[in-house]
Amino acid sequence: MSDPLIQIRGLHKYFGRHRVLRGIDLDIPAGQTLILLGPNGAGKTTLLRILSTLSRPTQGQVQVAGVNTSANPEGIRQYLGMVSHAPLLYDDLSAAENLEFYARLYGLQDPGHRVQELLKQVELYHRRKDLVRTFSRGMTQRLAIARALLHNPPILLLDEPDTGLDPQAAELMTDLLRDIGGRERTIVMTTHHLDRGFALADQVAILAGGKLVLNIPASQISAPELRPLYDRLVNQQRRKA
C-alpha cells in the first residue's frame, strides 16, 4: 500500500490548560474522502485548522505528502484548499473580484480565465459582478468552494460547509462536492449531517472529546448502522469524560 497523503501521529492540542485534541493518529490516502463526524466541541475544527496550518500542534506531527506542516507551512498551503462555515470572502467585493483577489494571492498565471471557469462551474457566472453581500447563504458557500479550488489543490478541507444551508442548497452542495472530488482529490470534511456526509465518504472517522473513537472504511458500514454507532461511541466518550 502506498504512503498516505496525510499522516497524523500523536497529535495533541491545548488551548491554555484545556486539552482539545488527545493523541490523534490518522492516515488519509490520496484520492479518498474522509468524513469526520463528532459533536460540538469534539475538536473537529481544531484538527482541520492544524491540517490547514492555521494552527500549530502542541505535540505530535502532521505530514502532508511526506512534509511536516510545522517545518514548511508555506509550501504545504499550496496543496490545500479550505472551505469553512465562514465563507472567507469579502462582502464588499463582487464574486469575480473576490476570486481574482485570491487568485493573485495564489500566484495564478491567468487569473481571469480560471475565475471565469470556476464561476461557471459553481453556476454563479451570471452574478459575477454582484457584491457578495447580496448573495444567499447557498450562493456564498458555492463561491467559497470556487475560492478553495482556484489553485486546483490536491487536498480539500471542508469544515461544516453545509452549516446554515436549506435542504435544497445542501443537496446542491453535495452534488458539487461529488463533482469536484474524484480520485485525484483528497477531501477531509467535517459535518453534523451523518447521512449527507456518508454519501460522500470513502472513510468515516468519529471524533469525541478530542479522541478519535472510530476510523474505518465506509465500505465496512451501512448508512442505517452509522447513526446508532455514532450515538453509542459519543455517549461512551461523554461518560468517560
Partner: peptide, 14 residues
C-alpha cells in the same frame, strides 16, 4: 469578524 483573515493566512506566501 467576516472570517476572511483565515482566507488571507491560508495563502501560500510569506
Amino acid at each position: 469578524d467576516k472570517g476572511s483573515l483565515a482566507g488571507l493566512l491560508l495563502a501560500p506566501v510569506d
